[in-house]
Computed example of a mutant assay.
Amino acid sequence: MRADGATGVDSVGAGRVETLALEGISSQSAYESFLPAAKALEPGFIEECCADIVLAYQVVRHAVEQVLGTGATSVSELPHVNVADLSLLPRLVQGLAYAALRVEREREAASFGPLFERAQQVRRRLRKAADALAEAQLLPDSDIDEVWLHERQDVLDDCLSLVALFRRNAARIASRSPVTVIEVDAAEQLVGQLRTVLGQQTSVRQEENPLFRAIEMRDRFWTLLLQRYDMLWRCGAWLYGRAVAERVPPLPVRPALVRPNPGGVMDGAAPRADMVPPRSLSTPGLVPMRGGSPASASRTPERTMSRHLDELQREMDRKTRFLVRIGAIPSARR
């Protein structure tokens, strides 16, 4: 049986260690220098930051060194590539670390901070499960569209939308969903509890609340990093071909767990670090690796590249459906 008290102490200790690590790399001046670019991002494409930021800093430094250290001259000749922006990627991560520390400070100051953190974890779990069901075509087309088109909603609204989706499809996904009926009910209760607490605050709306503003800015910095790191990956692919995975590794994130959890409702083990490849709307052209032996290029298995291309195709399909839905591009249907 789990010792709740010990687990709580371990969690607090781990959080303190992570905060100290963030403080070691964070930079307020870096935050301020990238703030205009982060604010300029379109709200509909902001992605939630679930990153191991300290590890991401090491990964980005390594990748920038590999691409710009010896290939800066070649990369500078590529169209639409700003070498100066790419060279500043480690500094962008330092700004992201500062934004993440602001979130932690606001969460500690807010009376509803721990409750909202739980709601974020619940939302990630529900969304991961819904994404998996949509990918497996276990949901009706209308609900698949809802899963893919509404993922940028407010956390609480998204939780309730997902709760409704799971209930609508309860019979269809019975024994196939990693989220149980009990967990769905618990998610709805958590949102209700949090809304009750928020209703007692002077600042109810997200844009007026310091915690929500800090979270949004942290996510904006993370999205900006994803976009610029994707360009670095493209440059690495042009320089090194299939060996790009060694030179420009995926950014490390902590995905939500979606498998059933015997330890308690919506309360899983500590999330593991995972690696998510850069996302692109199109696949960059790959050319043979410049320099080095063919053997070094063959170290990356064919299936790794194939899996990455599948990821890119799925992302392109999702974003295309979104753009068609909002009328940004015409539908192919006659």
Results as ranks from 00 to 15, higher is better:
L89F: 10
V103A: 14
G113H: 05
E117V: 04
Q120I: 03
R107L: 02
L101M: 07
S111E: 13
L101S: 01
E104G: 04
V103Y: 09
R118H: 13
A100P: 01
R91K: 10
R91A: 11
F116I: 08
A109Q: 07
L89V: 07
F112S: 12
A100Q: 11
A97H: 12
G113N: 12
E117I: 03
Q120E: 08
P114W: 13
Q121L: 14
R118E: 10
R102P: 00
G113T: 11
A99D: 00
G113L: 13
F116S: 07
L89K: 00
R91S: 15
S111Q: 12
R105I: 04
F112V: 09
E108G: 09
V122W: 05
A119L: 15
R102Y: 01
R107T: 01
L96C: 04
V103N: 00
G95K: 13
P90E: 09
L101W: 07
L92V: 00
V93R: 01
R107M: 11
V93C: 05
Y98L: 08
V93G: 02
Q94E: 15
E117K: 03
A109K: 06
R102Q: 03
L89N: 02
P114E: 14
V103L: 07
V103D: 14
R91I: 06
L92T: 02
V93P: 01
L89E: 02
L96D: 03
R107N: 07
Y98K: 14
L96I: 14
A119S: 12
A97P: 07
Q121R: 14
E106T: 15
R105Q: 06
A110K: 07
F116C: 05
R102C: 12
V122A: 15
Y98I: 03
E117Y: 04
R107E: 13
L89D: 00
E106I: 15
R91F: 00
A99K: 00
A99S: 03
A100M: 04
E106S: 13
A110T: 07
G95S: 06
A100V: 04
G95P: 03
Q121C: 10
L92Y: 03
P114F: 09
L115H: 05
L92S: 00
V93F: 03
R107V: 01
R105Y: 12
L92C: 02
F112D: 10
Q120L: 15
A97M: 11
R102L: 14
R118A: 06
P90S: 02
F116G: 08
R102E: 06
L92D: 01
L96F: 03
G95F: 11
A109F: 03
E106A: 11
V122F: 10
R118P: 02
L115P: 00
Q94M: 15
L89H: 03
A109Y: 05
P90D: 10
P90I: 04
F112T: 11
R118F: 06
R102G: 04
S111V: 14
R91D: 08
E104L: 00
V122H: 14
R91C: 08
L92Q: 05
P90Q: 09
F112P: 02
E117M: 05
R118C: 10
E106W: 05
L101D: 02
Q120N: 06
Q94V: 09
E104A: 01
A119C: 14
R118S: 09
